[in-house]
Amino acid sequence: MHLRMEEKEVPQTDAVRAKLGRAIVITSGKGGVGKTTTTANIGTALAQRGASVVLVDADVGLRNLDIVLGLESRVKHHLLDVLEEHVSLDDALVADKHSASLRLLAAAQSREKEDVDTEKMRALIHTLRERFDYVLIDCPAGIELGFKNAVVGADEAIVVCTPEVSAVRDVDRVVGLLGNAFKPQLIINRLRPQLVKKGKMLSVEDVNAILRLPLLGVIADEPEIIVATNRGEPLALREDAPTGAAYRAIAARVAGDDVPAPMPSVALTFFERLGSMFGGKRS
């Protein structure tokens, strides 16, 4: 029972696209900052807008993206099966549950990053660009071979950073390694506006005073994300969730829409509410 690319949303194997799709690597240097969560959510949001999207889990040995998308039971083949030509690309692409134009190419769980042939990876991403509007590549942590292989076929980069010294330092390093060719854009993840306000967390401005990257958007530290991951349903699908809206806004910006970068808001404190009640009317 193989999943074939027969839905009209996704171009056929031999269909020649007028223009190559965009291959965007989602990277950070540091692990656990939200690359996989970000990849799943932006991919979902782009697909919900009608674009054809394939998500490539390049974190060979530590497969996660299928879990976040709730697709783990559908994965039969993986990236290395395709690179080593054991199965066809069509056989390895997994159709998403929620978005008709979204596909996943899972990573091999029981293999190592060193098993990936860099040149074959480059060729595969190119093939995917011929068939999809967006190829989002979920990069492993680190700056070694796994990083190199994740980046090799990409032409753009999204870097994910949390407001922590170590994460900013690692992003700085990664951006240095990428160079300008990848036009890196920044997502700040797990921001806690209340802590920023109290001076207990680096602010968006603090982080970007150092990184100086175009800001795609800011995602709050949001317990709902963990719930969504437990369920395998990206928050980007949830109309009611503010963080879902933030992911949709980021996807819109990726697609080129002129919408503002999403920014988590601070719930007003008692005194501020008091202040705006009395002071607000005058201004």
């Binding site: 922590e164 700085d172 920023v196 109290k198 207990k200 680096l202 150092i210 404190t269």
Partner: peptide, 22 residues
């Protein structure tokens, strides 16, 4: 009275130095 007692300025300073070295 209630704000700005925080460690973010320490983080900023450490970040500045660490990147200089890097």
């Amino acid at each position: 009275l209630f704000g700005h007692s925080g460690s973010s300025s320490t983080a900023k300073e450490r970040l500045r130095l660490v990147l200089m070295t890097d």
